[in-house]
Write a protein that binds this DNA or RNA. Structure first.
Ligand SMILES: Nc1ncnc2c1ncn2[C@@H]1O[C@H](COP(=O)(O)OP(=O)(O)OP(=O)(O)O)[C@@H](O)[C@H]1O
Length: 702
DNA sequence: CGTACCCCACTTTTT
DNA sequence: GTGGGGTACG
């Protein structure tokens, strides 16, 4: 994917032989250096060539912040003679890292491979994989996603005979645990601080949860960051190695870093202070998962010697779009005011459509897309250039809103790609297959073992699993418990009392398949290994007997097999580990294909950092956007507004806004979103102006 | 004891 | 349409 094969390691011989040019300051610029600076404006050049010490680029949307990081890295390598592996760039998604590496490759060639790039999570994962033992983390730890986490909590609930609903709903408990962890609290501290009944309950679960994950050699997403930080704080030798290794640090989308990430960066930059962060406080949209806007606002206080470079020219949008975005976000308090202008004066008005219901709204959007892209048949000679479908995106607040739009697109046979929603890697059959891969590499990962035990159904039910859990639990002879993989093998040999014959035979069969597959790992490629998993686990035969749905699931397994082929250049064992790790850390955006001739359907959150010539924002209805759960709280309302700013500024040329008066589900009617009234009226072209709902002075409740 | 089937509540945003 | 949980049957 996006990272060099071992971004945390020492340079390989090949890396070392990458020619490193001596610093050149003072000399005339060579052709490559010209190419690096040419596509930049004056302010961007200043940011790119300011290489020593802390640097903050705080600037509005589309002002070329990401471009600054890319070109700055190129400049460091080409002009300053910095070795590529001494440079680190943290991006918001792995996709963004991959794109940055591609751009870099175009500019400077092969040495782009050696720059360390990735998300906070993937970088921490790789550091921990390599050095985690220094803080007591086993090398082969497993990364648990939300579903795995929920299974751990459900196990507790079962032990305690508690329901998985109401105040003991797993997602609720996990959310509370996550928030506490991101605030830097341990389970002990949570217990000390707990006041309400529910807080005490959560604190107790937090303690059990932490102990259980430890036993399973598993970490969750929060742990990746926390342990990554602990590595820097509690393993001085390791920390110093990384501080010496990465001499130049870059962080994109800095406004959405949380406290742990902030401290992690500070630890890494402590020695040299060569830290370049870029971001836009108006685009901070992840406070609900711990992001703290103060990280960027306080940068100059944290780094008193920081250079601050504002970027004021927007290269993405028309002035109309920028004015609309500004009209909305300027209603927020306590933001840093930033200039933003564009050479693209004027531009198309923003179309607004007030629909009766979501279906009507979707139909209108589809009609507009058909009009704009009416390339294929019956195009009028005077019609504007038809737009291609990959230049169109439809944005919405919640995943559920995509349904009505999807249906309308399907009816009109307009191809689309849906980003997010039920993600590929969390589909049941895909997770089952991945669980098989995980048990090949772990004896302790109970959650993965339990997943595969009865898929396909083979006579191992709740009762048997309970017996196995009991056998794996800590006891007098085994104070740390017994690895689940060993328990399964033992049960297959009839060494666990109470397991019935059918289950016992199945368990023996599973243990046998696991050991056979393990023997094969080193000898076959990853796709071949997956073939083995599919046939020997019985997954393949099971799906073959499941009709149309089984066929779809089987197609997903084949797709997974195809993806696994990307790791062919690695040794089989490394390929397996990398594949399992990467699949745990993919972001929604990673699935986005900007070249595909399709309309993109995507949430406003996932659209951050992307851009399209034509953008629709749908569902601008009070209660939906802004969301009803944000109506009561000023801070949350401001975040919704920033989200609106992000959405508007994704558009390069044409923007359409729509709302439905009757919402699809839930509580009754919605009024047009307040954000519509915050856009200067002269920028708007109300499509159904003759409609009494949207008329005159009172339009949008102005 | 396990499986198949039916019914329920559910949908803010995600690494 | 969804997935998970509860219940009835084999
Ligand atoms: N100096 C420049 N000249 C022309 N185009 C530029 C320049 N700098 C950036 N761009 C283009 O402007 C667009 C926005 O750039 P970029 O994504 O780097 O901005 P950003 O500030 O990171 O945006 P956002 O914060 O909205 O994600 C891109 O299409 C980029 O190629």
């Amino acid at each position: 994917m996006s990272l060099p094969l071992d971004p945390t390691g020492e340079p390989s011989p090949a890396e070392r032989s990458t020619p490193v040019r001596a610093p050149l300051s003072g000399e005339a610029l060579n052709a490559v250096e010209e190419r690096i600076l040419a596509p930049l404006n004056e302010a961007q050049r200043r940011a790119v060539t300011t290489t020593a010490g802390p640097l903050l680029v705080l600037a509005g949307a589309g002002s070329g912040k990401t471009r600054v990081i890319t070109h700055r890295i190129a400049w460091l390598i080409q002009h300053e003679g910095v070795a590529p592996w001494k440079i680190l760039a943290v991006t918001f998604t792995n996709k963004a890292a991959a794109e940055m590496r591609d751009r870099l490759h175009e500019m400077i060639g092969e040495s782009a491979r050696d720059v360390a790039m990735g998300t906070f999570h993937s970088l921490c994962a790789r550091m921990l994989r390599r050095d985690g033992e220094a803080i007591g983390l086993p090398k082969g730890f497993t990364i648990y996603d939300a579903d795995d986490q929920a299974r751990v909590i459900k196990g507790f609930l079962k032990e305690d005979d508690l329901p998985a609903t109401g105040e003991t709903k797993p997602s609720l408990i996990l959310g509370a645990i996550s928030r506490a962890k991101n605030d830097g609290l341990t389970a002990d501290q949570m217990e000390d601080r707990a006041i309400t009944h529910h807080e005490r309950l959560v604190a107790r679960f937090a303690r059990r949860y932490a102990a259980e994950l430890k036993r399973l050699d598993a970490v969750d997403f929060d742990d990746l960051l926390l342990e990554g930080l602990r590595l820097l704080q509690e393993a001085p030798a390791v920390a110093d190695r990384y501080r010496a290794k990465w001499e130049y640090l870059h962080v994109d989308e800095y406004q959405d870093t949380n406290r742990i990430q902030y401290t992690w960066v500070r630890e890494l930059a402590a020695k040299h202070g060569n830290l370049c962060v870029v971001g836009d406080d108006d685009q901070s949209i992840y406070s609900w998962r711990g992001a703290d806007i103060r990280n960027i606002l306080d940068f100059e206080r944290d780094w008193p010697t920081a250079e601050v470079v504002p970027l004021e020219q927007n290269y993405r949008s028309t002035q109309t779009i920028l004015d609309a975005a500004h009209g909305v976000v300027s209603n927020n308090q306590g933001r840093k005011k930033k200039k933003l202008w564009t050479e693209l004066e004027g531009g198309d008005q923003i179309t607004v459509y007030g629909a009766f219901d979501p279906e009507d709204e979707a139909a209108w959007i589809v009609r507009r897309i058909e009009e704009a892209s009416a390339a294929v048949t019956g195009r009028r000679a005077d019609a504007p250039e038809p737009v291609s479908l990959n230049g169109i995106a439809i944005l919405y607040r919640t995943n559920a809103q995509s349904r009505a739009i999807e249906e309308a697109l399907l009816r009109s046979s307009i191809p689309y790609q849906l980003i997010g929603g039920t993600r590929f890697y969390q589909r049941r059959e895909v997770k089952d297959a991945l669980a098989w891969l995980r048990v090949l590499r772990s004896d302790t990962d109970r959650i993965s073992y339990e997943r595969i035990l009865n898929v396909p159904p083979r006579g191992i039910g709740d009762k048997t699993i309970e017996l196995l859990r009991a056998a794996a639990a800590p006891s007098v002879n085994a104070p740390d418990g017994t690895p689940f993989g060993h328990v399964i093998a033992a049960a297959g040999r009839g060494e666990v009392a109470g397991v019935n014959t059918r289950a016992r035979n199945s368990l023996a069969g599973i243990a046998d398949v696991i050991s056979r597959l393990r023997d094969r790992i080193a000898a076959v490629t990853l796709p071949e290994l997956l073939d083995g998993v599919y046939s020997e686990s019985g997954l393949r035969a099971h799906l073959a007997s499941e009709g149309v749905e089984g066929e779809e699931r089987w197609a997903n397994l084949l797709e997974l097999r195809g993806i696994s082929g990307r790791f062919m250049e690695l040794a089989p064992l490394d390929a397996l580990d990398r594949f399992v790790e990467d699949t745990a850390l993919v972001a929604d955006q990673d699935a986005f294909d900007g070249d595909a001739e399709r309309v993109t359907l995507i949430t406003l959150h996932a659209a951050k950092g992307l851009e399209w010539p034509t953008v629709f924002i749908s569902g601008l209805t009070e209660g939906l956007f802004p969301h009803s759960r944000s109506l009561m709280d000023q801070e949350q309302m401001e975040e919704e507004r920033r989200l609106c700013y992000v959405g508007i500024t994704r558009a390069k040329r044409r923007l359409s806004l729509s709302y439905a008066l009757r919402r699809g589900w839930g509580d009754g009617d919605g009024a047009p979103s307040r954000f519509l009234a915050e856009i200067p009226e002269e920028l708007l072209d109300v499509a159904n102006d003759d409609d009494p709902r949207a008329d005159g002075e009172t339009r949008f409740g102005r």
